[in-house]
């Protein structure tokens, strides 16, 4: 059994202009100890998807009736996440204790008026039941584990006293202090300098193999994905258009959007005269195109097919999936 299995996740929001559906029919599984990379442009629904896993969506959000989110908790019980009541004890245990989350901006994750240790100990008290000295010692141990120098002193400092890289390490330490089995990292290195990013990536890779934790790593940087994830899901306008093992997807992309993204990345190994953007802008979720969501920007789109019919999911190879009319026949032949 998988650690997490998501089926048909669709999220809609009530707005003044009527309902908007930023996430539609997202399905994926995550095994224990694996890292799934979630890539896509801003507005593709990456963050909303992961927030739904922790039920952190605002009140105006509504899950579709056939959405299934199954999570296997520490006791081996299957939690039906979408059915939990907002005030359920199980939901409280899930947030932080089972699934941890770290955000892009570390400063926003810490309260400026409490010390780092104070905030870490709160999480430890809640999820581990430790108090006083024991909780403090665990907090110091976690800070040491993420490579902060002099953790016994850092524990009594405030977030603003640390540099950006140290702060992001402290956020990771706080998330890990409740020993979650799944860590959601929402663009954790985007705001950092490349040297600090390298340190944080190395740290997260190390911690993951030590703790046997699963991760969902959200980023728009395919370079980061190549270094940290085993599997990747490419999102476009709220749907996963391609999914599979990282090497296969990056080396042999099947969806025109994945190919476009890879082409658009400026390379450090080759100087080019021109870059190759994916033409056009991502449409607004309130004006979702009919048929394939990508057909408005796709250079290979076939009129009459792509703009009318929504492509089905085609599975092929080892654990790969693509949603494209054009990929289907070719893959059917190769199979």
């Amino acid at each position: 059994m998988m650690l997490l299995s998501v089926e048909n996740l669709s999220i809609s929001f009530r707005t003044d202009e009527g309902p908007v559906t930023p996430v539609q029919g997202v399905s994926f599984d995550l095994a224990a100890g694996r890292t799934l990379g979630l890539v896509g442009e801003s507005g593709s629904g990456k963050s909303v998807t992961t927030k739904a896993l922790m039920r952190l969506l605002p009140g105006s959000a509504k899950l579709a009736p056939d959405t299934r989110i199954r999570y296997r908790d520490k006791a081996g019980q299957i939690v039906e996440v979408e059915k939990l009541k907002p005030d359920a004890r199980a939901l409280r245990a899930l947030r932080g204790g089972e699934i941890g989350i770290i955000f892009q901006e570390p400063m926003a994750s810490f309260s400026p008026v409490y010390t780092i240790g104070n905030q870490m100990m709160e999480a430890i008290r809640l999820h581990k039941g430790l108090r006083g000295r024991a909780a403090r010692e665990l907090a110091i141990e976690m800070l040491a584990k993420v490579g902060l120098s002099n953790p016994a002193a850092r524990v009594d400092q405030y977030a603003f006293e640390l540099s950006g890289g140290m702060r992001q390490r402290a956020v990771i330490a706080m998330a890990l202090s409740a020993s979650p089995r799944l860590l959601i990292a929402d663009e954790p290195t985007t705001a950092l300098d490349v040297t600090i990013q390298a340190q944080v990536l190395e740290l997260m890779r190390g911690l993951q193999s030590d703790l046997g934790m699963s991760m969902i790593f959200i980023t728009h940087d395919l370079g980061v994905i190549a270094q940290i994830a085993q599997e990747v899901a490419v999102m476009y306008l709220g749907t996963i258009v391609e999914r599979g093992p990282v090497r296969d997807v990056l080396k042999d992309p099947q969806h025109p959007y994945t190919r476009g993204l890879l082409k658009a990345i400026p390379s450090l190994d080759r100087l080019t005269r021109r870059l190759h953007p994916v033409p056009g802008d991502i449409p607004s979720p309130s004006a979702r195109p009919t048929g394939c969501p990508f057909h408005t920007r796709c250079t290979e789109a076939r009129p009459g097919l792509c703009d009318r019919m929504s492509p089905a999911q085609t599975s092929f190879g080892t654990g790969r999936m693509v949603r494209c009319h054009l990929a289907e026949p070719a893959l059917a032949r190769s199979a």
């Binding site: 890289g165 490349v194 040297t195 370079g223």
Partner: peptide, 25 residues
């Protein structure tokens, strides 16, 4: 050299060995 080595490349076959810069700026 350290800056260049720290940039992750979108190719899992290219080894990623960022130069470790100890300490802070």
């Amino acid at each position: 050299h350290a800056l260049l080595s720290a940039v992750p490349v979108a190719d899992p076959d290219i080894p990623y060995n960022p130069v470790r810069l100890d300490g802070e700026i």
